[in-house]
Nucleic acid binder design. Structure first.
Lengths: 343, 343
DNA sequence: CCAGCAATTCAAAGCGCTTTGGACGGGCGA
DNA sequence: TCGCCCGTCCAAAGCGCTTTGAATTGCTGG
């Protein structure tokens, strides 16, 4: 079933049928009703490719996911982000096209996406410090929105991000208020921009109370259970071990908890753990009313929604002015933190 | 830059240029070389929409992801599966288009995908018992491959699946050989087909040794850390608690381990845990040489690759004969299992 | 030397839609 | 009554590619 035959059946021209279905005013309401009725009855949906070719709009948003041996971007956070963005795309009639590329080919992938014209814009994930993608996209002239920010870049660009500095500064202050002085940071991978910012918040809070940084208490890595466990265990074995851990993800926090328990200590009493919680769909921090871990909480799915909405707005308005949105994390109290044990 | 202008610059007709680039034989090697050189220099890539319209092939595979309040399909397993499939798509020149829909609209989404013609086929995730999607896709005439199987359906269809029955039968037998008699099953959601099959394997092994099923030792649910923890804790509090747990995912196993440790027991000595491990990229079961949990192991990413390859093969061959592939899980030995403690 | 053939190349139609520029007719004001 | 405008509809061009059918060229063999 296509436009032409539908038009023939109705005794109308394709022009009129097209206009009726797309809500143009130069068609009488009577025929519009007749046309929509017939279209529904015939389960007619205009061919996407033809529509795209005629309008020059791909009605699709690209996500490029680099895959490397070094580490995985296809992680749990990514899945939830995608889900949030996908909701918005679906509502707005956009397709989501995912491209998995070996990370050596990433730049080429953007260029091809552009020149093949199969997306109207792209969403950029997991920016690193001094990430080169922004300059590349600028030169391509392809609309984009960044999930996160890039510390090394001066020029302005569109982004949605959590206020990571503030979140981790508050978290650190919270632990300091509980009289913790040996606070460890189990961070995400060091050249990820969000990890850099979290560390900055942590350092700022310590500096404000004139507490010297102890490099032994700062680690980084892929945010897995094993990372949390191994790094926490190593730090607990130090001569002067930390009394509190700040972790970058729920998985790391779970690993840290295991290390704490293995050491015969009680979480929340002997050792406090405070983590960032992305509110992943399948990895809950207890219940909303009763969290297990005290956490800085910010929904990554919501971030996905906002990124998508922002990108679509940019595309449809044709506006190239960069816009941005900073989300604040809330600090929720769980059972994993308590006053520092007195020595 | 488009075909026409490229052809003009070369002093050739669009026909010839198109043929040169697409490898048709009726063009001399000399001009083909000249054309490809010019195309590369100009960074020319044929417009995807136009190509699709002209060829009638979308060069895209659809994944429909229903989203419900009840539970999340956007889970970690999904992310890894997607990554595997995406690798194959990228190599074969296909796009991956993800559609997120409220699960009430799922059927409609397939219909639209079909009639709008923006995919050449679809990959079906997470089949349930008596899943209706197969019959629907058959009637739509849209090529598909199923990741998993559907117990209630007699007709044949294309699928890739792990031999879940056998995996869990072997796992159960392994525990039985270690003299465990109270073996608990912490399963995935009950109406998921894979959960049903795993349970069948478990039941079959017990039946073979004439051990009665104890419904108190069988639970199901979303495979999260909390599920593993809560359900294991409840079972450990029974008058006659299990000495071994069989869990459906690494996350559940981690939860179960926590419950075991909270009860003052030692995993691998007092209580054994054996889990299924999907080999997720960011959720490793220790290292390959030294697993933490004894596990039935099968890479879901590899499953994604095989599903994608199978679907593309079907599409390109035009073959509508159902094909299928059964993957066997391997049983790897970790530190989480040991002989049943003597009473 | 020319018919016949293979190797190259091209013009033009077509994929299914949108959109521009008109055509047509009815109602209104002058 | 006539002219004009507005509401409604349509024919045809065009989006950028592929592909059919035909044209052109250069050779070969009789």
């Amino acid at each position: 079933m296509n436009l032409k035959t539908l038009a023939q059946e109705l005794g109308l021209s394709p022009t009129t049928v097209s206009r009726a279905l797309n809500g143009y005013p130069e068609v009488s309401e009577a025929t519009r009703a007749r046309v929509t009725a017939a279209a529904n009855a015939a389960h007619y949906h205009p061919n996407t490719q033809a529509k795209r070719l005629a309008t020059g709009r791909a009605m699709a948003i690209g996500h490029i996911i680099p895959i490397s041996d070094r580490h995985e971007i296809v992680n749990p956070v990514f899945a939830d982000f995608i889900a949030g963005a996908g909701e918005v795309y679906a509502r707005s009639g956009y397709d989501m096209v995912l491209t998995i590329v070996p990370d050596a080919d990433e730049a080429r992938a953007y260029g091809e996406l552009r020149s093949k014209g199969n997306v109207d814009g792209v969403l950029i994930h997991a920016p690193r410090v001094n990430d080169h993608r922004i300059t590349m996209l600028e030169s391509l002239g392809l609309p984009y929105v960044l999930h996160g920010r890039i510390s090394g870049i001066e020029s302005s660009y569109s982004w949605v991000d959590v206020n990571n500095v503030r979140a981790f500064e508050r978290a650190t202050n919270f632990l300091l208020d509980l009289r913790h002085r040996r606070i460890a940071l189990i961070n995400g991978i060091g050249d990820m921009d969000f990890a850099r910012r979290r560390r900055r918040g942590y350092e700022r809070a310590l500096a404000a109370r004139a507490i010297a940084l102890d490099p032994q208490l700062i680690t980084e890595g892929e945010m897995t259970e094993a990372q949390g466990h191994d790094q926490a265990r190593a730090m607990l074995a130090l001569p002067d071990p930390p009394t509190a851990f700040l972790t970058a993800s729920l998985l790391s926090a779970m690993g840290a908890r295991r290390a704490v328990e293995e050491a015969g200590l009680v979480m929340g009493r002997d050792v406090s753990i405070l983590t960032h919680d992305d509110e992943l769909g399948y990895l809950k921090n207890g219940t909303a009313q009763e969290p297990i871990f005290t956490a800085t909480r910010s929904s990554v799915r919501e971030a996905g929604r906002r990124c998508a909405a922002m990108l679509i707005a940019q595309i449809e308005s044709g506006n190239r002015q960069p816009i941005s949105e900073l989300m604040e994390a809330v600090l929720v109290l769980g059972q994993s933190t308590g006053p520092a044990p007195s020595r």
